[in-house]
Simulated scan of single mutants.
Amino acid sequence: MAVIGRPDVPEGPHRRLVDALHEVYLRAGAPGVRTIAQRGGVSRDTAHRVLTNPALPTWPALEAVVAALGGDIGRFRALWVAARQPDAAPVAEPPAESGAAAGPSVRVLVVEDHPLYRHALVQAMDAFGHVVVGTAANGEDAVSLALETRPEVILMDHFLPGLLGIDATARIRSADPAIRVLIISAGATGELTLAALRSGAHGVLSKDVEADGIDRAIRAVARGEVHVPAGSAAPPEVAEPREAGEQELKPRERRVLQLVAEGYTDVQIAERLAVSVRTVRSYLDRVRDKTGERRRAGLVRVALESGLVRPRPGGATPDASSG
């Protein structure tokens, strides 16, 4: 099978992108267009055009081909952004094995009323290889834009003019449960964390977190995990027992719930308790029946409300994807 040659483009950011793509293509064994198309979920024409056309490809097409070839998505996102702005100051290419943007890009909607912070969030998303599908400055626009663009994750400021972030979240999640929301606030208190989880959000993020912390939180939420800041659980005096006629949990059931909220998977819980995974899931079924919460995010909320657990640093706990 003939090796696909690289297109001829002038020296500059676009050339660096082309060279890097050809290098990844050769390192992957120079697969045929059919194979690349099947792996990337695109047409053969699209795969061929990305590899051979001297014009700059669209990001979704390039991302699909890079993913099919096993390339670093974050690295190519940075190269592509630089190639779109050839007259701008040179952009340092991140190392090929950079962990800053490890994993696939996430489609993000940024909702923030402060222009400077909103711009900073958008820049951070670009730097980490995510795709910003839009921005909004108030809750009403956030709802309409979310249902129009269908992002994977929404970075939602809480204190928005008009409709508050948690109220906008409730409306969005009611209309499309597949959209995940990460509430951002200058004061990520226990009360806000509980209110956010009740609204359907998948977590809370403090505005003083570093950029890589935002990236980790977005990727965690996109994977279906719940992100709560360390120490954000409601204090004992406000964490009251739930009252929906729920049955009291037995000690072993409470222990399983605690481990779920602390971020352990079913397999890890089984190892810690020296029981089978099947037994752990049996306990979880009982906990779900007694609490009325079917998803792991709801179980985390129950554990926080009861004061059973305080989140560990890093704050990510798995959702229903782990069973």
Rank of each mutant, 00 (worst) to 15 (best):
P94Q: 02
L116Y: 02
V133P: 01
D113A: 07
F128Q: 07
G99W: 11
L109E: 03
M156Q: 11
A120W: 04
R150T: 13
S144A: 14
P94N: 00
T135R: 02
R75C: 05
G99R: 15
V143I: 09
Q123E: 15
V91D: 04
R150D: 10
R84W: 01
R75M: 11
G134Y: 02
V143A: 03
G139F: 10
P95H: 04
V110A: 08
V106Q: 02
D87I: 05
V131M: 11
F159H: 13
A101Y: 04
A146Y: 00
A146Q: 03
P95T: 02
H119K: 12
S105N: 10
P151L: 07
E93F: 07
G103S: 02
P115W: 08
Y117T: 15
A124Q: 11
A82C: 12
G103F: 01
G70K: 01
A88V: 03
G134T: 06
A96Q: 06
E112T: 05
D113N: 12
R150V: 15
P115V: 06
L155G: 07
A102S: 13
A102M: 11
S144P: 00
V131F: 09
V132G: 05
A92Y: 06
F128M: 07
S98M: 09
M156T: 08
G71I: 02
L121C: 14
L145H: 00
Q85F: 14
L79F: 11
G74S: 11
R118V: 03
V81T: 13
E93G: 08
W80I: 04
I154A: 10
V106T: 08
D126A: 12
A88L: 09
V132S: 04
A137L: 00
P95L: 10
L147D: 13
V133R: 00
W80E: 05
A78N: 05
